[in-house]
Each structure stands twice: as structure tokens, then as C-alpha cells.
Design a protein around this nucleic acid. Structure first.
Lengths: 120, 120
DNA sequence: GTACTTGTTCCCATACAACTAGAACAAGCG
DNA sequence: CGCTTGTTCTAGTTGTATGGGAACAAGTAC
């Protein structure tokens, strides 16, 4: 599981990490029970702070996608499979939305904002 | 056009305002040519700073949804109709996505993150 | 048991974004 | 002309993101 960051991007580093891990779960690269690299290792290899990596892990824990335990590390939650990030209906819905957004030439900010609002 | 804010929310105030205005355009509450309330008035009624409101307006201008002119105020851009924020296909796509997200019990953050990733 | 791993929780410091505050300015309107 | 309204500027406060370091707690390995 290769993680990368772009220090120049507007998104916070921990959000970049969380997004890649979510995408990996959705793509099936990571499955329930799989272990994530220790936060210290990720921090060292990306040359960023331990706290930053842990914050990404904790965000995923708050979303119910990852389980964290001292001494054991971070593992993909069983719920991540059950909850179905790779559910066919969900992925179809996302693909359709992206296609519609592109068709209308909408700014990505506009699209994500509309979705966020619709989810409230 | 009633605008509200939640000072305790993690989203910046100007983003909250922009999101509501986008949603209003998408819902048809606001149409091309309609005038937005003067920034000073909004700032006063919400008890926030003029700059914060103007930043929301400017973000919408950058997205092509609103036009700003000194002395005349802020108006919904013609493109806002053409671009079709209230396009049937778009709205159906959003509704479907929201339904799928709810069905799977996904955290809103997870859903929006996946969409943002898919739009890149 | 001891040693090691790994997340958790503190401390603090720095950099940047968000917000506030106030003022002056410029374009449009009546 | 006066009034409205967005634009631009300066400046200060606050919160978040990130970094750096340390101690701690729960789990694993021997």
C-alpha cells in the first residue's frame, strides 16, 4: 500500500492520506482485517510527523472504516466490507454523478458542495 | 432568501454561506438575474464580518454562478441557469447517490471524500 | 517476567487560514 | 450631489495543521 502526499496541495496532509486509504478500501486493494502500516513507519517514509499520520487513521476510525489498537496497529474494520464502500450501486451512483457533473461543465467545488448539502 | 450559519461547525462560515446559495440556485429559489442581499446587510443580520460574506460571494463568482458589481450588488449569473445546476439528470444523480449512501449507512465524510476523489 | 511494538495522550512551538475591525476607494444609481 | 455596494488595504486575534518531543498503556514476542 503505497501512500503519497503533495505538500503543495490545498488539502491537509492527513486528509490526503485518509482519502487514499478510503479509495484503497473502495477499490478492494485493502480488505477487512488488512493491516495498515504503523503510523511511525508511514511518517518516517513520507518525512512527515507521526501526529499527522495518526490523525488520518483516527479520522478513518471515526468513520468506522478502521480499527486502532495499541500494540496491534491499525486494521481495516469488518464494517468496511459490510458497509460496502465497493458496493456496486454506490459506485454506479458516483460514476453517474461524475458524468453529469462533467457534462454540465460544473466546477468540482460546485458538485461536491451540492452533494455535501444534500447529505445534511 | 434566508441564510443561516453555525459558528460551531467545522466548515468555514463563508463556505456555509456559499453552499446555501448554491443549493438555492439548484433548487430554483434563486434564478438568473435575481439579486442577492447586499453583503453588509447579510453581515449585520448574521452578526458576522462584511469580509466573510463577500468571500462567499466571491467564491460563487469564481465558480461562475454569481456576478458582482460595485454599486449594483450581487446577482445570479445567466450561466447559472445555462450551466444547469437544476438539470434533471444532475439532481437525479445526486438523489441516487444520497440514497445509496444512506442505504449503506456511510458517514457523510466518507461519501463526500469518495466523490471528491472521483472528480479529480 | 522482559523487551519490543504501536497507538494514546500530554507538552510546546511555528505557520497559515479564517475571522474580525476599520478605513478609504471606485463604480453605479437616483 | 448623496447614497449604495463591491473592492482594496492594513492590522490584529483566533483556530487548525503540522512539527518535535516525551511519557504512557495495551498488546505481541521471547
Amino acid at each position: 500500500m503505497l501512500l503519497t502526499i503533495d505538500p503543495a496541495a490545498p488539502e491537509p496532509l492527513f486528509e490526503q492520506l485518509a482519502a487514499q486509504l478510503r479509495a484503497a478500501i473502495a477499490a478492494g486493494t485493502l480488505s477487512a482485517g488488512d493491516r495498515l502500516a504503523p503510523a511511525r513507519d508511514v511518517a518516517a517514509s513520507l518525512d512527515i510527523n507521526l501526529h499527522t499520520v495518526l490523525r488520518a487513521y483516527q479520522e478513518l476510525r471515526d468513520e468506522g472504516l478502521v480499527e486502532l489498537r495499541r500494540g496491534r496497529g491499525a486494521t481495516v474494520a469488518a464494517r468496511a466490507d459490510d458497509a460496502g464502500l465497493r458496493d456496486a450501486g454506490l459506485r454506479a451512483a458516483i460514476d453517474t454523478l461524475v458524468a453529469e457533473s462533467r457534462r454540465l461543465g460544473l466546477d468540482p467545488r460546485t458538485t461536491t458542495a451540492l452533494v455535501k448539502e444534500a447529505l445534511r
